[in-house]
């Protein structure tokens, strides 16, 4: 089974191609401001150099954010288009899930701890996006938090992963692909068909309008 995954929600865009659980290739590329011009060439390069025909891909995986609004939309639109044209399913997950659970695990060889994992990202304006995982499942979906709250919550976690550090040594798309293969093998695929972005935040204009109507 071939799986192709992309992440365009974070400053480094990433693409990964897997054959079952083995990585055939990955790409990570600075993509801020030009993700759309780099994504499809990256996908194409990876497929061509791996000698895999796009028609042979069995599963597409993609991150839904939180992260760059525009970036998330580019990844989701490209992958949904590809999957629709080729007639294969999309497995869409939060960017944090790809990071926290993407190392893969099995009951015999837990690679990631089953205890609590906290993933966080800088949301700008002094705020944080964070989510929690435990027992290899998401227990708190991505939400906004203050820096103080993050620090307090971090004490309750066995592992704390800042996305900005993770992308320096890990490939988010590879995690996304591994997790997607695992999800499909475990029969949980139906829970991962929602391909809408996880924005967490409303559009700025909506926030202003709410403030105005609430006085």
């Amino acid at each position: 089974m071939y799986a192709l995954a992309v992440d365009t929600s974070l400053p480094l865009l990433s693409v990964a191609l897997l054959s079952d659980r083995s990585v055939l290739g990955t790409i990570a590329l600075e993509g801020k401001g030009s993700r759309n011009e780099k994504l499809l060439p990256s996908i194409d390069w990876l497929l061509t150099e791996s000698g895999i025909d796009r028609q042979a891909i069995d599963l597409f995986a993609v991150t839904r954010g939180p992260g760059s609004f525009t970036g998330v939309r580019i990844g989701l639109a490209t992958i949904q288009g590809l999957a629709l044209a080729i007639g294969r399913p999309v497995c869409a997950m939060s960017t944090h899930e790809a990071i926290a659970l993407g190392e893969g695990t099995s009951a015999d060889h837990p690679i990631v701890p089953l205890e609590r994992i906290l993933v966080w990202d800088d949301a700008g304006r002094g705020e944080i996006y964070l989510s929690f995982f435990e027992g290899h499942h998401e227990i708190v979906a991505p939400r906004l938090a203050s820096v103080a709250e993050r620090d307090e919550l971090a004490r309750t976690a066995a592992l704390v992963i800042p996305t900005a550090e993770f992308i320096q040594h890990g490939n988010v798309a590879a995690g996304c692909a591994r997790r997607a293969v695992e999800i499909h093998a475990s029969g949980e695929a139906a829970r991962y068909t929602d391909a809408t972005p996880i924005y967490v935040r409303l559009a700025e204009a909506e926030v202003k309008l709410q403030r105005k109507t609430n006085g």
Partner: peptide, 20 residues
């Protein structure tokens, strides 16, 4: 609007690349 255009362009790219 650049963000709006990008949705259509990325979607079209995915479809066209998939269809060859």
């Amino acid at each position: 609007l650049i963000g709006a255009l990008l949705v259509g362009v990325a979607g079209a790219q995915g479809l066209a690349y998939g269809l060859g």
